[in-house]
Design a protein around this nucleic acid. Structure first.
Length: 483
RNA sequence: GGCCCAUUGGUCAAGCGGUCAAGACAUCGCCCUUUCACGGCGGUAACCCGGGUUCGAUUCCCGGAUGGGUCACCA
Protein backbone atom coordinates (compact mmCIF):
# COMPACT_ATOMS: atom_id res chain seq x y z
CA UNK A 1 0.00 0.00 0.00
CA UNK A 2 1.37 3.33 -1.02
CA UNK A 3 2.23 6.06 1.40
CA UNK A 4 0.35 9.28 1.32
CA UNK A 5 -2.87 7.63 0.40
CA UNK A 6 -6.17 8.11 2.08
CA UNK A 7 -6.61 6.49 5.45
CA UNK A 8 -10.08 6.37 6.97
CA UNK A 9 -11.33 4.67 10.06
CA UNK A 10 -14.51 3.38 11.55
CA UNK A 11 -14.36 3.75 15.30
CA UNK A 12 -17.45 2.26 16.91
CA UNK A 13 -18.12 1.78 20.60
CA UNK A 14 -19.16 -1.77 21.46
CA UNK A 15 -22.32 -0.69 23.19
CA UNK A 16 -24.87 -2.89 21.53
CA UNK A 17 -26.40 -3.50 18.17
CA UNK A 18 -25.27 -1.97 14.95
CA UNK A 19 -27.97 0.25 13.59
CA UNK A 20 -28.13 1.40 10.03
CA UNK A 21 -26.83 4.86 10.84
CA UNK A 22 -23.61 3.36 12.18
CA UNK A 23 -23.37 1.02 9.28
CA UNK A 24 -23.76 3.89 6.87
CA UNK A 25 -20.88 5.73 8.49
CA UNK A 26 -18.76 2.60 8.15
CA UNK A 27 -19.82 2.24 4.53
CA UNK A 28 -18.88 5.78 3.64
CA UNK A 29 -15.54 5.49 5.40
CA UNK A 30 -14.86 2.26 3.55
CA UNK A 31 -15.92 3.68 0.21
CA UNK A 32 -13.90 6.84 0.64
CA UNK A 33 -10.78 4.83 1.39
CA UNK A 34 -11.25 2.30 -1.37
CA UNK A 35 -12.25 4.86 -3.93
CA UNK A 36 -8.83 6.41 -3.50
CA UNK A 37 -7.08 3.08 -3.22
CA UNK A 38 -6.48 3.87 0.43
CA UNK A 39 -6.64 2.09 3.75
CA UNK A 40 -9.71 1.38 5.85
CA UNK A 41 -9.05 0.97 9.54
CA UNK A 42 -11.20 -0.46 12.32
CA UNK A 43 -10.63 0.89 15.80
CA UNK A 44 -12.70 -0.30 18.71
CA UNK A 45 -13.43 2.46 21.20
CA UNK A 46 -14.19 0.41 24.25
CA UNK A 47 -13.25 2.80 27.01
CA UNK A 48 -16.77 3.31 28.23
CA UNK A 49 -17.05 0.42 30.64
CA UNK A 50 -20.42 1.66 31.83
CA UNK A 51 -22.06 1.07 28.51
CA UNK A 52 -19.98 -1.88 27.39
CA UNK A 53 -22.15 -4.70 26.12
CA UNK A 54 -20.98 -8.28 26.03
CA UNK A 55 -20.70 -9.60 22.50
CA UNK A 56 -20.99 -6.18 20.91
CA UNK A 57 -17.50 -6.40 19.44
CA UNK A 58 -18.45 -9.60 17.65
CA UNK A 59 -21.52 -7.92 16.26
CA UNK A 60 -19.32 -5.22 14.80
CA UNK A 61 -16.96 -7.78 13.29
CA UNK A 62 -19.79 -9.91 11.92
CA UNK A 63 -21.66 -7.00 10.44
CA UNK A 64 -18.66 -5.57 8.66
CA UNK A 65 -17.63 -8.97 7.39
CA UNK A 66 -21.09 -9.90 6.17
CA UNK A 67 -21.46 -6.64 4.34
CA UNK A 68 -18.02 -6.97 2.84
CA UNK A 69 -16.60 -3.88 4.49
CA UNK A 70 -13.30 -5.52 5.20
CA UNK A 71 -10.75 -3.53 7.15
CA UNK A 72 -7.08 -3.43 6.26
CA UNK A 73 -5.94 -2.70 9.77
CA UNK A 74 -7.73 -3.55 12.98
CA UNK A 75 -7.67 -5.42 16.27
CA UNK A 76 -7.61 -8.90 14.77
CA UNK A 77 -5.52 -8.31 11.66
CA UNK A 78 -3.13 -5.90 13.28
CA UNK A 79 -1.25 -3.23 11.42
CA UNK A 80 1.62 -0.77 11.76
CA UNK A 81 -0.04 1.67 14.14
CA UNK A 82 -1.68 -0.60 16.68
CA UNK A 83 -3.01 -1.48 19.08
CA UNK A 84 -6.42 -0.93 17.50
CA UNK A 85 -8.41 -1.38 20.65
CA UNK A 86 -8.57 1.86 22.51
CA UNK A 87 -8.48 0.39 25.99
CA UNK A 88 -5.05 -0.99 25.16
CA UNK A 89 -3.79 2.46 24.28
CA UNK A 90 -4.74 4.18 27.51
CA UNK A 91 -1.23 4.54 28.87
CA UNK A 92 0.06 6.74 26.11
CA UNK A 93 -2.19 9.74 26.27
CA UNK A 94 -1.03 11.46 29.40
CA UNK A 95 2.42 12.16 28.05
CA UNK A 96 0.90 13.96 25.10
CA UNK A 97 -1.14 16.14 27.43
CA UNK A 98 1.89 16.85 29.54
CA UNK A 99 3.78 17.88 26.47
CA UNK A 100 1.11 20.50 25.95
CA UNK A 101 1.47 21.62 29.57
CA UNK A 102 5.21 22.05 29.04
CA UNK A 103 4.54 24.11 25.97
CA UNK A 104 2.16 26.32 27.90
CA UNK A 105 -0.82 25.20 25.88
CA UNK A 106 -2.48 23.27 28.67
CA UNK A 107 -2.51 23.38 32.44
CA UNK A 108 -3.21 21.43 35.57
CA UNK A 109 -6.57 22.18 37.11
CA UNK A 110 -7.18 21.30 40.72
CA UNK A 111 -10.75 22.49 40.93
CA UNK A 112 -13.07 20.14 42.76
CA UNK A 113 -16.44 19.12 41.39
CA UNK A 114 -17.94 21.09 44.25
CA UNK A 115 -16.22 24.29 43.21
CA UNK A 116 -17.29 23.74 39.62
CA UNK A 117 -20.83 23.27 40.77
CA UNK A 118 -20.74 26.48 42.76
CA UNK A 119 -19.15 28.29 39.86
CA UNK A 120 -21.98 27.30 37.57
CA UNK A 121 -24.56 28.52 40.00
CA UNK A 122 -22.87 31.86 40.21
CA UNK A 123 -22.67 32.05 36.44
CA UNK A 124 -26.35 31.46 36.27
CA UNK A 125 -26.92 34.37 38.58
CA UNK A 126 -24.49 36.61 36.75
CA UNK A 127 -24.35 37.20 33.03
CA UNK A 128 -21.43 34.96 32.11
CA UNK A 129 -21.62 32.12 29.65
CA UNK A 130 -23.17 29.38 31.71
CA UNK A 131 -21.29 26.14 31.88
CA UNK A 132 -17.91 27.36 30.83
CA UNK A 133 -15.00 26.81 33.11
CA UNK A 134 -13.93 30.14 34.55
CA UNK A 135 -10.21 29.60 34.18
CA UNK A 136 -9.59 29.54 37.90
CA UNK A 137 -6.48 27.37 37.58
CA UNK A 138 -5.35 28.75 34.28
CA UNK A 139 -2.81 31.09 35.79
CA UNK A 140 -1.69 29.39 38.98
CA UNK A 141 1.89 30.13 39.91
CA UNK A 142 4.51 27.48 39.48
CA UNK A 143 4.81 27.24 43.26
CA UNK A 144 1.10 26.66 43.77
CA UNK A 145 1.04 24.00 41.11
CA UNK A 146 4.04 22.21 42.57
CA UNK A 147 2.56 22.43 46.03
CA UNK A 148 -0.68 20.84 44.92
CA UNK A 149 1.13 18.19 42.94
CA UNK A 150 3.33 17.32 45.91
CA UNK A 151 0.34 17.17 48.18
CA UNK A 152 -1.29 14.74 45.80
CA UNK A 153 -4.29 16.95 45.10
CA UNK A 154 -6.34 15.35 42.32
CA UNK A 155 -6.19 17.24 39.07
CA UNK A 156 -7.26 17.24 35.46
CA UNK A 157 -5.37 18.67 32.51
CA UNK A 158 -7.19 21.32 30.56
CA UNK A 159 -6.32 22.88 27.27
CA UNK A 160 -5.94 26.65 27.10
CA UNK A 161 -8.43 27.82 24.56
CA UNK A 162 -8.12 31.21 22.89
CA UNK A 163 -10.58 33.71 24.31
CA UNK A 164 -11.00 35.80 21.23
CA UNK A 165 -11.18 35.33 17.52
CA UNK A 166 -12.83 32.59 15.55
CA UNK A 167 -11.89 29.08 14.64
CA UNK A 168 -13.06 27.87 11.28
CA UNK A 169 -12.76 24.84 9.09
CA UNK A 170 -14.11 23.53 5.85
CA UNK A 171 -16.19 20.44 5.98
CA UNK A 172 -16.49 18.38 2.82
CA UNK A 173 -20.24 18.24 3.25
CA UNK A 174 -21.25 21.32 5.18
CA UNK A 175 -18.75 23.74 3.74
CA UNK A 176 -17.19 26.56 5.68
CA UNK A 177 -18.05 26.63 9.34
CA UNK A 178 -16.82 29.01 11.95
CA UNK A 179 -17.42 29.51 15.62
CA UNK A 180 -16.36 32.18 18.05
CA UNK A 181 -13.60 31.05 20.34
CA UNK A 182 -15.52 32.59 23.21
CA UNK A 183 -17.91 29.69 22.76
CA UNK A 184 -15.19 27.23 23.55
CA UNK A 185 -14.20 26.39 27.08
CA UNK A 186 -10.92 25.09 28.36
CA UNK A 187 -11.58 21.46 27.60
CA UNK A 188 -10.41 18.65 29.77
CA UNK A 189 -7.83 16.43 28.14
CA UNK A 190 -6.93 14.11 30.99
CA UNK A 191 -9.40 13.18 33.69
CA UNK A 192 -8.71 12.85 37.42
CA UNK A 193 -8.14 9.15 36.96
CA UNK A 194 -5.38 9.85 34.47
CA UNK A 195 -7.43 8.63 31.51
CA UNK A 196 -8.03 10.76 28.44
CA UNK A 197 -11.38 12.22 27.55
CA UNK A 198 -12.98 10.89 24.42
CA UNK A 199 -12.22 13.96 22.35
CA UNK A 200 -8.58 13.96 23.33
CA UNK A 201 -8.06 10.27 22.78
CA UNK A 202 -9.77 10.59 19.46
CA UNK A 203 -7.50 13.31 18.19
CA UNK A 204 -4.34 11.62 19.38
CA UNK A 205 -5.41 8.24 18.01
CA UNK A 206 -6.44 9.64 14.68
CA UNK A 207 -3.15 11.43 14.35
CA UNK A 208 -1.05 8.47 15.45
CA UNK A 209 -2.94 6.24 13.05
CA UNK A 210 -2.41 8.66 10.22
CA UNK A 211 -6.08 9.20 9.54
CA UNK A 212 -6.43 11.61 6.64
CA UNK A 213 -10.22 11.76 6.38
CA UNK A 214 -12.45 11.77 9.40
CA UNK A 215 -15.92 10.54 8.53
CA UNK A 216 -18.48 10.77 11.31
CA UNK A 217 -21.93 11.96 12.23
CA UNK A 218 -22.92 15.60 12.11
CA UNK A 219 -23.31 15.64 15.88
CA UNK A 220 -19.57 16.27 15.92
CA UNK A 221 -19.84 19.33 13.74
CA UNK A 222 -19.93 21.79 16.58
CA UNK A 223 -17.08 20.21 18.49
CA UNK A 224 -14.81 20.04 15.48
CA UNK A 225 -13.25 23.46 16.18
CA UNK A 226 -12.14 22.06 19.54
CA UNK A 227 -10.53 19.14 17.76
CA UNK A 228 -8.76 21.47 15.41
CA UNK A 229 -7.39 23.61 18.22
CA UNK A 230 -5.83 20.44 19.57
CA UNK A 231 -4.29 19.52 16.25
CA UNK A 232 -2.93 23.02 16.05
CA UNK A 233 -1.54 22.94 19.59
CA UNK A 234 0.41 19.85 18.66
CA UNK A 235 1.33 21.18 15.27
CA UNK A 236 -0.30 18.22 13.56
CA UNK A 237 -1.97 18.15 10.19
CA UNK A 238 -5.71 18.57 10.39
CA UNK A 239 -7.61 15.82 8.58
CA UNK A 240 -10.31 16.36 6.01
CA UNK A 241 -13.70 16.26 7.71
CA UNK A 242 -16.71 14.58 6.18
CA UNK A 243 -19.68 14.97 8.47
CA UNK A 244 -22.79 12.98 7.68
CA UNK A 245 -26.34 14.02 8.52
CA UNK A 246 -28.24 11.77 10.92
CA UNK A 247 -30.53 8.97 9.88
CA UNK A 248 -33.96 9.61 11.28
CA UNK A 249 -36.82 7.38 12.27
CA UNK A 250 -39.28 10.17 11.55
CA UNK A 251 -39.09 13.92 11.18
CA UNK A 252 -38.38 14.40 14.87
CA UNK A 253 -36.45 11.40 16.09
CA UNK A 254 -33.17 9.84 15.22
CA UNK A 255 -33.14 6.16 14.55
CA UNK A 256 -32.85 4.56 17.94
CA UNK A 257 -30.87 1.47 18.71
CA UNK A 258 -33.81 0.32 20.77
CA UNK A 259 -36.03 0.31 17.74
CA UNK A 260 -35.69 -3.27 16.60
CA UNK A 261 -35.96 -3.02 12.85
CA UNK A 262 -33.30 -0.39 12.65
CA UNK A 263 -30.49 -2.79 13.40
CA UNK A 264 -28.64 -4.72 10.78
CA UNK A 265 -29.08 -7.96 12.68
CA UNK A 266 -32.83 -7.62 12.81
CA UNK A 267 -33.05 -6.83 9.15
CA UNK A 268 -31.13 -10.01 8.40
CA UNK A 269 -33.46 -12.04 10.57
CA UNK A 270 -36.40 -10.59 8.72
CA UNK A 271 -35.05 -11.90 5.49
CA UNK A 272 -33.41 -8.87 3.97
CA UNK A 273 -30.32 -9.41 1.88
CA UNK A 274 -27.10 -7.94 3.13
CA UNK A 275 -26.30 -6.41 -0.25
CA UNK A 276 -29.71 -4.81 -0.45
CA UNK A 277 -29.43 -3.25 2.98
CA UNK A 278 -26.03 -1.87 2.10
CA UNK A 279 -27.37 -0.54 -1.17
CA UNK A 280 -30.28 1.15 0.55
CA UNK A 281 -28.20 2.87 3.19
CA UNK A 282 -25.80 4.04 0.51
CA UNK A 283 -28.74 5.97 -0.91
CA UNK A 284 -29.86 7.27 2.48
CA UNK A 285 -28.42 10.72 2.42
CA UNK A 286 -26.26 10.26 -0.63
CA UNK A 287 -27.13 10.41 -4.27
CA UNK A 288 -25.29 9.05 -7.27
CA UNK A 289 -24.64 11.06 -10.40
CA UNK A 290 -26.79 9.14 -12.83
CA UNK A 291 -30.15 7.49 -12.47
CA UNK A 292 -29.04 3.97 -11.71
CA UNK A 293 -29.42 3.15 -8.07
CA UNK A 294 -28.64 -0.51 -7.75
CA UNK A 295 -24.95 -1.06 -7.14
CA UNK A 296 -22.61 -3.80 -6.07
CA UNK A 297 -20.01 -2.94 -3.47
CA UNK A 298 -17.36 -2.78 -6.19
CA UNK A 299 -19.47 -0.34 -8.15
CA UNK A 300 -20.08 1.74 -5.06
CA UNK A 301 -16.35 2.01 -4.55
CA UNK A 302 -15.94 3.31 -8.06
CA UNK A 303 -18.66 5.92 -8.00
CA UNK A 304 -18.58 7.12 -4.42
CA UNK A 305 -17.96 10.80 -3.96
CA UNK A 306 -18.56 12.61 -0.70
CA UNK A 307 -19.90 15.58 -2.63
CA UNK A 308 -23.09 13.59 -3.07
CA UNK A 309 -23.74 13.47 0.66
CA UNK A 310 -26.67 15.65 1.57
CA UNK A 311 -26.75 18.11 4.42
CA UNK A 312 -30.16 17.42 5.82
CA UNK A 313 -31.31 14.46 7.89
CA UNK A 314 -32.79 11.52 6.01
CA UNK A 315 -35.74 9.52 7.22
CA UNK A 316 -35.24 5.78 7.09
CA UNK A 317 -37.95 4.45 4.78
CA UNK A 318 -38.68 0.75 5.28
CA UNK A 319 -40.79 0.76 2.13
CA UNK A 320 -37.92 1.82 -0.07
CA UNK A 321 -35.67 -0.73 1.62
CA UNK A 322 -38.26 -3.37 0.79
CA UNK A 323 -38.37 -2.26 -2.82
CA UNK A 324 -34.62 -2.44 -3.16
CA UNK A 325 -34.56 -5.79 -1.44
CA UNK A 326 -37.21 -7.02 -3.87
CA UNK A 327 -35.10 -5.81 -6.75
CA UNK A 328 -32.13 -7.76 -5.43
CA UNK A 329 -34.20 -10.88 -5.01
CA UNK A 330 -35.50 -10.64 -8.55
CA UNK A 331 -32.01 -10.24 -9.93
CA UNK A 332 -30.76 -13.36 -8.18
CA UNK A 333 -29.94 -16.38 -10.37
CA UNK A 334 -32.70 -18.98 -9.90
CA UNK A 335 -30.39 -21.46 -8.17
CA UNK A 336 -29.16 -18.83 -5.76
CA UNK A 337 -32.70 -17.83 -4.91
CA UNK A 338 -33.67 -21.40 -4.25
CA UNK A 339 -30.67 -21.81 -2.02
CA UNK A 340 -31.54 -18.89 0.22
CA UNK A 341 -35.28 -19.53 0.08
CA UNK A 342 -34.95 -23.18 1.08
CA UNK A 343 -34.53 -22.62 4.82
CA UNK A 344 -37.68 -20.53 4.81
CA UNK A 345 -39.56 -23.07 2.74
CA UNK A 346 -38.49 -25.76 5.18
CA UNK A 347 -40.16 -23.86 7.95
CA UNK A 348 -43.45 -23.60 6.09
CA UNK A 349 -43.75 -26.77 4.05
CA UNK A 350 -43.39 -30.33 5.32
CA UNK A 351 -44.65 -32.27 2.34
CA UNK A 352 -42.97 -33.11 -0.92
CA UNK A 353 -43.41 -30.48 -3.59
CA UNK A 354 -41.62 -29.35 -6.72
CA UNK A 355 -39.37 -26.74 -5.20
CA UNK A 356 -37.77 -25.57 -8.39
CA UNK A 357 -41.16 -24.73 -9.82
CA UNK A 358 -42.23 -23.20 -6.54
CA UNK A 359 -39.18 -20.98 -6.43
CA UNK A 360 -39.68 -19.87 -10.01
CA UNK A 361 -43.06 -18.60 -8.89
CA UNK A 362 -41.91 -17.30 -5.56
CA UNK A 363 -38.98 -15.24 -6.73
CA UNK A 364 -40.92 -12.40 -8.35
CA UNK A 365 -43.48 -12.46 -5.56
CA UNK A 366 -41.24 -12.06 -2.62
CA UNK A 367 -39.88 -8.75 -1.42
CA UNK A 368 -38.47 -10.01 1.85
CA UNK A 369 -37.64 -13.65 2.53
CA UNK A 370 -39.75 -13.82 5.66
CA UNK A 371 -42.86 -13.37 3.51
CA UNK A 372 -42.33 -16.88 2.25
CA UNK A 373 -43.78 -18.28 5.44
CA UNK A 374 -47.26 -16.88 5.02
CA UNK A 375 -47.27 -17.40 1.29
CA UNK A 376 -46.78 -21.14 1.60
CA UNK A 377 -49.13 -21.89 4.45
CA UNK A 378 -51.45 -23.96 2.25
CA UNK A 379 -49.10 -26.72 1.14
CA UNK A 380 -49.28 -28.83 4.25
CA UNK A 381 -53.05 -28.53 4.27
CA UNK A 382 -55.68 -26.41 2.54
CA UNK A 383 -56.34 -23.22 4.43
CA UNK A 384 -59.92 -23.32 5.74
CA UNK A 385 -62.11 -21.18 3.51
CA UNK A 386 -65.68 -20.45 2.58
CA UNK A 387 -67.08 -20.94 -0.89
CA UNK A 388 -67.61 -17.24 -1.46
CA UNK A 389 -63.90 -17.15 -2.27
CA UNK A 390 -64.91 -18.53 -5.64
CA UNK A 391 -66.74 -15.36 -6.46
CA UNK A 392 -64.63 -13.18 -8.71
CA UNK A 393 -66.08 -10.43 -10.81
CA UNK A 394 -63.32 -10.23 -13.35
CA UNK A 395 -63.19 -13.95 -13.96
CA UNK A 396 -66.98 -14.11 -13.88
CA UNK A 397 -66.89 -16.93 -11.41
CA UNK A 398 -69.03 -17.90 -8.46
CA UNK A 399 -69.42 -20.99 -6.29
CA UNK A 400 -71.84 -22.34 -8.89
CA UNK A 401 -69.51 -21.87 -11.86
CA UNK A 402 -66.65 -23.16 -9.74
CA UNK A 403 -68.52 -26.39 -9.28
CA UNK A 404 -68.88 -26.75 -13.02
CA UNK A 405 -65.28 -25.83 -13.61
CA UNK A 406 -63.87 -28.26 -11.07
CA UNK A 407 -66.13 -31.05 -12.27
CA UNK A 408 -64.86 -30.46 -15.79
CA UNK A 409 -61.26 -30.27 -14.67
CA UNK A 410 -61.20 -33.36 -12.50
CA UNK A 411 -61.33 -35.97 -15.25
CA UNK A 412 -58.87 -34.02 -17.34
CA UNK A 413 -56.34 -33.97 -14.55
CA UNK A 414 -56.99 -37.55 -13.54
CA UNK A 415 -56.24 -38.56 -17.09
CA UNK A 416 -52.88 -36.78 -17.26
CA UNK A 417 -49.93 -39.02 -18.08
CA UNK A 418 -47.05 -36.58 -17.76
CA UNK A 419 -47.56 -34.51 -14.68
CA UNK A 420 -45.69 -31.33 -15.48
CA UNK A 421 -46.57 -27.70 -15.53
CA UNK A 422 -46.78 -27.12 -19.26
CA UNK A 423 -48.67 -30.30 -19.99
CA UNK A 424 -51.19 -29.59 -17.29
CA UNK A 425 -51.72 -26.06 -18.49
CA UNK A 426 -52.10 -27.17 -22.10
CA UNK A 427 -54.66 -29.77 -21.18
CA UNK A 428 -56.63 -27.26 -19.14
CA UNK A 429 -56.46 -24.68 -21.87
CA UNK A 430 -57.79 -27.17 -24.35
CA UNK A 431 -60.62 -27.97 -22.04
CA UNK A 432 -61.46 -24.30 -21.76
CA UNK A 433 -61.53 -23.95 -25.52
CA UNK A 434 -63.68 -27.00 -25.83
CA UNK A 435 -66.12 -25.58 -23.29
CA UNK A 436 -65.85 -22.17 -24.92
CA UNK A 437 -64.97 -20.45 -21.66
CA UNK A 438 -62.09 -18.22 -20.68
CA UNK A 439 -59.05 -19.77 -19.07
CA UNK A 440 -59.70 -17.76 -15.95
CA UNK A 441 -63.20 -19.02 -15.58
CA UNK A 442 -61.90 -22.56 -15.53
CA UNK A 443 -58.63 -22.11 -13.70
CA UNK A 444 -59.33 -19.49 -11.07
CA UNK A 445 -61.43 -21.98 -9.10
CA UNK A 446 -58.64 -24.52 -9.33
CA UNK A 447 -56.30 -22.26 -7.41
CA UNK A 448 -58.89 -21.77 -4.69
CA UNK A 449 -59.62 -25.47 -4.44
CA UNK A 450 -55.96 -26.33 -4.12
CA UNK A 451 -55.03 -23.66 -1.61
CA UNK A 452 -58.06 -22.13 0.02
CA UNK A 453 -56.57 -18.72 -0.85
CA UNK A 454 -57.11 -16.14 -3.54
CA UNK A 455 -53.51 -15.13 -3.71
CA UNK A 456 -50.91 -17.78 -4.19
CA UNK A 457 -47.44 -18.02 -5.66
CA UNK A 458 -48.51 -19.37 -9.02
CA UNK A 459 -51.77 -20.04 -10.77
CA UNK A 460 -53.96 -23.11 -10.38
CA UNK A 461 -52.02 -25.25 -12.79
CA UNK A 462 -48.73 -24.23 -11.21
CA UNK A 463 -49.97 -25.27 -7.81
CA UNK A 464 -51.21 -28.55 -9.24
CA UNK A 465 -47.83 -29.19 -10.79
CA UNK A 466 -46.06 -28.36 -7.55
CA UNK A 467 -48.10 -30.57 -5.25
CA UNK A 468 -48.46 -33.58 -7.52
CA UNK A 469 -51.31 -35.44 -9.11
CA UNK A 470 -52.50 -37.36 -6.12
CA UNK A 471 -52.76 -34.36 -3.84
CA UNK A 472 -54.32 -32.27 -6.58
CA UNK A 473 -57.05 -34.77 -7.30
CA UNK A 474 -57.75 -35.21 -3.64
CA UNK A 475 -58.06 -31.50 -3.03
CA UNK A 476 -60.39 -31.01 -5.97
CA UNK A 477 -62.59 -33.81 -4.70
CA UNK A 478 -62.64 -32.26 -1.25
CA UNK A 479 -63.50 -28.90 -2.74
CA UNK A 480 -66.33 -30.40 -4.73
CA UNK A 481 -67.85 -31.77 -1.57
CA UNK A 482 -68.26 -28.23 -0.30
CA UNK A 483 -70.03 -27.04 -3.41
C1' G B 1 -31.49 29.82 26.21
C1' G B 2 -26.34 30.74 23.40
C1' C B 3 -23.86 28.82 19.22
C1' C B 4 -23.73 25.66 14.66
C1' C B 5 -26.52 23.40 10.71
C1' A B 6 -30.61 22.36 7.67
C1' U B 7 -35.61 23.31 4.88
C1' U B 8 -37.62 20.85 -3.25
C1' G B 9 -43.95 16.06 -4.01
C1' G B 10 -45.90 11.18 1.41
C1' U B 11 -40.30 9.34 1.51
C1' C B 12 -35.12 9.41 -0.63
C1' A B 13 -33.52 13.11 -3.72
C1' A B 14 -31.38 15.96 -8.78
C1' G B 15 -30.84 21.04 -9.35
C1' C B 16 -26.08 24.90 -8.30
C1' G B 17 -29.83 32.79 -11.88
C1' G B 18 -33.56 31.71 -17.18
C1' U B 19 -35.70 24.05 -16.71
C1' C B 20 -42.74 22.33 -19.08
C1' A B 21 -38.40 21.79 -11.60
C1' A B 22 -35.05 15.09 -13.12
C1' G B 23 -35.24 10.12 -11.24
C1' A B 24 -36.49 6.27 -7.57
C1' C B 25 -40.01 4.31 -3.78
C1' A B 26 -45.06 4.86 -2.45
C1' U B 27 -49.92 5.97 -4.66
C1' C B 28 -53.69 5.87 -8.82
C1' G B 29 -55.16 4.09 -13.82
C1' C B 30 -54.44 1.01 -18.20
C1' C B 31 -52.07 -3.27 -20.72
C1' C B 32 -50.25 -8.32 -20.06
C1' U B 33 -52.32 -12.59 -17.38
C1' U B 34 -54.82 -19.43 -14.82
C1' U B 35 -54.94 -15.89 -8.74
C1' C B 36 -51.36 -12.58 -6.97
C1' A B 37 -47.05 -10.69 -8.56
C1' C B 38 -43.13 -9.48 -12.25
C1' G B 39 -43.00 -6.58 -16.62
C1' G B 40 -44.74 -2.45 -19.96
C1' C B 41 -47.28 2.34 -20.50
C1' G B 42 -49.43 6.60 -18.35
C1' G B 43 -51.47 9.96 -14.31
C1' U B 44 -51.74 12.76 -9.42
C1' A B 45 -48.20 15.15 -6.41
C1' A B 46 -42.94 19.74 -4.45
C1' C B 47 -39.26 24.61 -4.33
C1' C B 48 -41.49 26.80 4.31
C1' C B 49 -42.86 32.33 4.75
C1' G B 50 -41.40 37.55 4.32
C1' G B 51 -38.15 41.19 2.43
C1' G B 52 -34.21 42.46 -0.70
C1' U B 53 -30.16 41.91 -5.07
C1' U B 54 -31.22 41.14 -10.31
C1' C B 55 -34.12 42.13 -16.65
C1' G B 56 -35.09 37.40 -14.17
C1' A B 57 -34.93 33.82 -8.34
C1' U B 58 -35.96 27.04 -6.12
C1' U B 59 -30.93 28.75 -6.82
C1' C B 60 -27.48 34.72 -4.02
C1' C B 61 -28.17 38.10 0.72
C1' C B 62 -31.04 39.45 5.29
C1' G B 63 -34.96 38.35 8.64
C1' G B 64 -38.85 34.86 10.49
C1' A B 65 -40.92 30.09 11.17
C1' U B 66 -40.04 24.97 11.62
C1' G B 67 -36.66 20.91 12.41
C1' G B 68 -31.92 18.85 13.85
C1' G B 69 -27.24 19.14 16.46
C1' U B 70 -24.23 20.94 20.45
C1' C B 71 -23.07 23.27 24.96
C1' A B 72 -19.90 16.91 30.70
C1' C B 73 -13.90 14.68 34.63
C1' C B 74 -19.99 10.25 28.45
C1' A B 75 -18.32 8.12 24.54
Amino acid sequence: MANNTVRTRFAPSPTGYMHVGNLRTALYAYLKAKNQDGTFILRIEDTDQERYVEGAVDIIYDTLRQTGLTWDEGPDVGGPVGPYVQSERMGMFKQYAEQLVKDGKAYYCFCTPERLEKMREEQKAGGAVVGHYDGHCRNLSQEEIQKNLDAGVPYVIRQKMPKEGVTSFDDAVYGHIEVNNSELEDQILIKTDGMPTYNFANVVDDHLMGITHVIRGSEYLSSTPKYNLLYQAFGWDIPVYIHCPPVMKDAQNKLSKRNGDASYQDLMEKGYLSEAVLNYILLLGWSPKGEEEIFTLEEMVKIFDEKGISKSPAIFDPLKLRAINAEYIRRLPAEKFQEIANPWIDRAVHVEIDRALLCANLQPRCEVLSEILEQLDFFDAVVPYTTDLYTNKKQKTSPETAKQALEALLPVLEGMQDWNRDAIFEACKQKAEEMEVKNGWLLFPLGIALSGKQRTPGGGTDLAAMMGKQETVKRIQDALKML
